[in-house]
């Protein structure tokens, strides 16, 4: 079986997601804001999608600067 190519970071609010986006942009980490997939949460917000291989790097970049709620493999 192939490993899932993406991981998503879920945040308490869009403000948090946008702050995370800004941090990743500044650090040059490839990412995309997408609507939260229905099977992950019924919330209507957005989440941050990154390559699975980058998830450790992303967690490190966000640590202490913006809180996230969960990280889920797609």
């Amino acid at each position: 079986m192939e490993a899932p190519p993406y991981a998503v970071f879920l945040f308490p609010s869009v403000s948090h997601a946008l702050k995370a986006e800004k941090i990743l942009k500044e650090q040059g980490i490839v990412h995309k804001l997408i609507p939260v997939p229905r099977h992950i949460s019924s919330d209507c917000g957005v989440c941050l999608r990154v390559a699975v291989a980058q998830q450790g790097l992303v967690a490190e970049a966000l640590q202490g600067l913006v809180t996230w709620e969960r990280m889920v493999l797609l």
Binding site: P12, S13, V14, S15, S41, S42, D43, C44, G45, T67
Partner: peptide, 16 residues
């Protein structure tokens, strides 16, 4: 607030 829309309780975090 746009966040936590599935809950009827006010979010408890900043700034929402």
């Amino acid at each position: 607030t746009g966040s936590r829309s599935e809950f009827e309780r006010q979010p408890d975090f900043m700034p929402d």
